[in-house]
Design a binder for these strands. Structure first.
Length: 775
DNA sequence: GCGTGGGAAATTTTT
DNA sequence: TTTCCCACGC
């Protein structure tokens, strides 16, 4: 480890007495050290996968505080997820101890945005007690606005409009700033009018959605330069993690905070990221932000962390070869000094079930060799691909854990349970009231809710209060009346109970007495056991808090699944969920055109979409430490239809010398000569020295050059090679690799109706069949 | 007020 | 194929 050079010391402003390296610098390599010591001016830290980014970044913050350059409260440090913020805090704490508690501006964009908004809420017409609504509520609100505008609610869905709102808010646009020509995007040209109505409704509810947390900040900073100046003075140092994932609103927010009053880029802003790992373009992230950083902040120092501490040379070579095919890159070359391990393994299989079987076999083999299950992960492109793995793991008795999916606090049963608790704490919470008043069914249906709503609006009180008053008159009758009376009485009891009972016990009682637990107990669905389990978990989590308030505040701030122990379980997750994680053994199944790269991404976003998919491939491979196994299937069921699939183009981009082809001979079991279309797969799968056979190359080159229509690429290829007519006659006896023997019943182009002896009648592609007498 | 059947849709996901 | 949503009928 070289000591800092004179110029580095000068630049970092190190006084002579600081010359002895503080111990925390010792574990750093030269670029990491530079990233820590270059405290002044704009810095772009380009940190490749596995290069010790977090270490550099946390040391930098610790260094700022330890050397007295900034107090803990003078640093703005933003991340995207609560998890990242928590980890950063922990690791800084390891370096500087208690002082980390003073870092009140370390958090997610949204939590910091919310903090600032609470202080200056009145500037945008909110009270500082505003509530933050989640996506679910946002969609409900959208529906209301669409209905109020008298639009066709089938054609114009709440979800669709919420998506457009997100898009605008990601771009930092208020209703007045949306370009007029975007009004046509929704609701017969009334999109902007709807946006305005939606915002007005939010203000009257004293609420903000996630996007508002930042957009309102922008408005505040622009409207009140004195407020901005205050934050500008306060945040002497700014640090941004995962900068490649920032959207326009976040970019504008940072720029306002980082530039000085004259608009010059004098701020001490350090952004950390990896343009090659930008995989959130579809939710508004702009890779352009990181690509443009040096222009935005002239004089920016660019520091590249390229020494990888995670993976073997083969794995790095595979990842680098793929990402090299992208054009818009800042460019980095990962290297490592660890000895090489096994080559990246590539395997072609028949279908998804076969793929799952092979992966499971591999996992079991590794396990016998003494590898822990939790050291292995299966990373898929889309969650529907998980099904075959879950099924296979279950039959094989391999414990596994799915990461991601609906988060704990977003699940239906959790939200319902929380609505009950919220209502106990605050009877005026109308959103919660509406959510659970008839769940479980207690005979208080839509009609009754509507009556109650009208009454509440007339009396200008909450629904609970309106209910109480209605019971004093005879406006509400029959079943609804009894039901409401009973519910309000229960609510009263629970409130009284809340005074003296700890949250976990209260939660259990409320869920039991309200009939909510029974509601799920009586449902005979497969999921109900899991739901009950979640409810139990909720109660358990409440046990960690002394007060109901404390618990509920925690929940609305951190919408995460509680951490679960994971030893002895294989990991199963999407590539997106795997970002930032690493495993000794990584399986990457489903590398087929249309799946990965996702056909939709490529179709909708063309070259940009394809490059993002390629970054996803890069992220996937770089998760592996020792062993990376890629596979693809020749057939896949899409929405219940069997389709043939071509291996992903990314497979062609792998470096042959670092890849071992593992497909077993005869896997495809069909005579190549007789099946021209099929032969390509056969040759791909053949273990005759590589996947780059002439037939394979032919197949690739005959694929349409334009990536956009690739959706039909596979089937068109098959269809044309078969010449449009089936080589089989009706009544002919045929054999199918998967379904066995059968008789042709009819044909539609190259798709045949075949009655199989074992598998029943199915539609299959002609090229997957051979005449029975040839077997 | 509640249950059911037909029809449309079907990635990736944090706050 | 599955899943979700809504309209319709009891």
């Amino acid at each position: 480890m070289t000591p800092p050079s004179l110029s580095e010391r000068a630049r970092a402003g190190l006084a002579a007495t600081d010359m002895d390296d503080p111990p925390y610098l010792a574990p750093l390599n030269p670029p990491q050290r530079e990233a820590v010591l270059t405290t002044e001016g704009p810095v772009l830290m380009l940190a490749g996968a596995g290069t010790g980014k977090t270490r550099a970044l946390t040391t930098r913050l610790a260094h700022l505080i330890a050397t007295g350059r900034a107090g803990p409260g003078d640093i703005l440090a933003v991340t995207f997820t609560n998890k990242a913020a928590r980890e950063m805090k922990e690791r800084i704490g390891e370096l500087i101890g208690e002082a980390v508690e003073g870092m009140r501006w370390l958090g997610t964009f949204h939590s910091i945005g919310a903090q600032i908004l609470r202080i200056h809420a009145e500037i945008v017409g909110l009270k500082s007690s505003f509530t933050i609504i989640d996506t679910d509520d946002q969609i409900r609100l959208c529906k209301q606005v669409i209905a109020a505008e008298g639009l066709d609610e089938k054609r114009w869905t709440g979800r669709g409009f919420a998506g457009l709102l997100d898009d605008w808010k990601n771009r930092g646009l208020t209703p007045g700033e949306v370009p007029a020509d975007e009004a046509h995007k929704f609701g017969d040209g009334r999109a902007i009018k709807l946006y305005r109505a939606y915002q007005e409704r939010l203000i009257s509810l004293n609420a903000a959605d996630f996007g508002d947390l930042l957009v309102h900040n922008l408005t505040i900073f622009r409207k009140a330069p004195d407020v901005l100046a205050r934050y500008h003075r306060r945040f002497r140092y700014i640090l941004v993690d995962e900068y490649q994932d920032t959207n326009i609103a976040q970019y504008l927010w940072l720029r306002l905070l980082a530039r000085d009053a004259e608009g010059k880029s004098g701020g001490n802003i350090c952004v950390v990221g990896d343009d090659d790992q930008s995989i959130y373009g579809w939710r508004g992230a702009e890779v352009a932000n990181i690509l443009r950083f040096e222009k935005d902040f002239p004089g920016a120092k660019v520091i590249r962390l390229e020494q990888n501490y995670r993976s073997t040379p083969s794995i790095l070579a595979a990842a680098s070869a793929i990402i090299d095919h992208n054009s818009n890159r800042l460019g980095k070359t990962l290297w490592t000094d660890v000895p090489d391990g096994p080559k990246v393994k590539l395997r072609g299989v028949w279908d998804a079930d076969e793929e799952a079987r092979q992966v499971t076999d591999d996992i079991e083999a590794e396990q016998t060799k003494g590898r822990r299950l939790s050291d292995m992960a299966v990373l898929v492109r889309a969650s529907f691909q998980m099904r075959s793995f879950e099924e296979r793991f279950n039959t094989a008795g391999i414990p596994y854990r799915v990461v991601g999916g609906p988060r704990f606090y977003e699940r239906e049963e959790t939200r319902d349970a929380l609505a009950y608790l919220r209502l106990v704490r605050n009877p005026d919470d109308d959103l919660s009231f509406t959510r659970i008043i008839n769940k479980p069914r207690r005979g208080f249906g839509d009609k009754a809710v509507q009556t109650l709503n009208i009454a509440a609006r007339e009396m200008r009180v909450s629904l609970t209060e309106a209910g109480r008053r209605l019971l004093e008159t005879d406006e509400m009758r029959g079943k609804a009346r009894t039901s409401l009376a009973r519910f309000l009485e229960q609510l009263r009891q629970w409130q009284a109970m809340a005074e003296t009972t700890p949250p976990s016990e209260l939660s259990e009682t409320v869920l039991e007495e309200s009939g909510y637990t029974d509601f799920w107990r009586n449902q005979k669905t497969i999921q109900s056991a899991g739901k009950l389990e979640n409810l139990k978990e909720l109660t358990r989590a409440a046990g960690e808090f002394d007060t109901l308030e404390g618990y509920l505040d925690h929940v609305s701030l951190v919408a995460e699944r509680p951490a679960e122990s994971s030893d002895g379980e294989v990991w199963l997750m999407t590539l997106h969920a795997a970002k930032g994680l690493e495993y000794p053994v990584v399986f990457l199944p489903g590398w087929e055109e249309e799946i990965f790269p996702s056909g939709r991404s490529v179709n909708e976003n063309g070259q940009d979409g394809l490059e993002e998919e390629r970054r996803l491939a890069y992220v996937g491979i770089t998760r592996a430490r020792e062993d990376c196994r890629i596979s693809f299937a020749a057939n896949r069921q899409v929405y219940g239809r069997w389709q043939s699939a071509l291996p992903s183009r990314f497979i062609d981009e792998l470096p042959e010398e670092h890849v071992e082809v593992m497909s077993e001979p005869g896997l495809y079991g069909v005579k190549a000569k007789e099946m021209p279309a099929y032969s390509r797969f056969d040759q791909v799968a053949a273990s005759d020295g590589g996947y780059d056979t002439p037939g394979w190359k032919r197949a690739r080159s005959s694929r349409p050059r334009n990536p956009a229509p690739a959706i039909d690429g596979s089937s068109r290829l098959i269809a044309s090679s078969v010449g449009g007519t089936s080589p089989f006659k009706t009544g002919e006896r045929v054999f199918h690799q998967k379904f066995g023997y059968g008789e042709v019943k009819g044909a539609d182009g190259n798709k045949l109706d075949v009655a199989f002896e074992k598998a029943g009648q199915k539609k299959v592609i002609a090229s997957f069949l051979i005449a029975a007498d040839e077997v």
